[in-house]
Nucleic acid binder design. Sequence first.
DNA 1: GCGACAG
DNA 2: ATCTTGTCGC
Length: 226
Amino acid sequence: MADSVRAALINEYRQRQRELARSVVERPLATPPRLIAAVDVHLRGTQGVAAAVLCAYPTLEELAHYVALGQVPFPYIPGLLSYREAPLCLEAIRGLPESPDLILVDGQGRAHPRRAGIACHLGVELGLPTIGVAKSILVGRHEPLGDERGSVAPLVADDEVIGMAVRTRAGVTPVYVSVGHLVTLEDAVEWTLRTTTRYRLPEPSRRAHRLAQDAARALPSNDSRD
DNA sequence: GCGACAG
DNA sequence: ATCTTGTCGC
């Protein structure tokens, strides 16, 4: 397709994100979440696998999980990840036997060029509290943070605090936490730390990651068409 | 024009 | 993310 057409489509999606960003609600979690879920996606060619895991808090015991398979409908374009991964994530979360009180999402929430990362997208679509927990930065910068678990540093872009770099474990690269929907940034950091035990990522996220990875590996094989 | 760039 | 084994280090 012509580059000009592609550029016009990209602008359309960006505009949609600006609208989505206006629907995001940042407010304190009403009650402590008892059911905490996480979602993650693994890709194999044009096929995708999304896994949602439901855990109990505070035990972090796994109560249920659901795996959704399907074709991935959109290319990876930095800033437009939602359109690639959100449909399968929604299917996976909706497949859980109970609605979670909080969802941990692999990727950014507000820490996005238009303040509309995939955690915002899923939260608004589901009407549920979500937190973005990303392994790397999409936009923004931060000062160095302490070495101990629990150290934080504000992630700033356009003179605005859009998220927080959080050391979830001593001696490991921080994760980048931001509001998805129906939480505050303080809640987001608090619940990221509360669900993280001995690894860099929260336990529900790790389980979703492995589940999606295993399911993707078991998939037919190499169809990496364009 | 030159990088940066979630997963 | 994916293509992919071993290897360095606590």
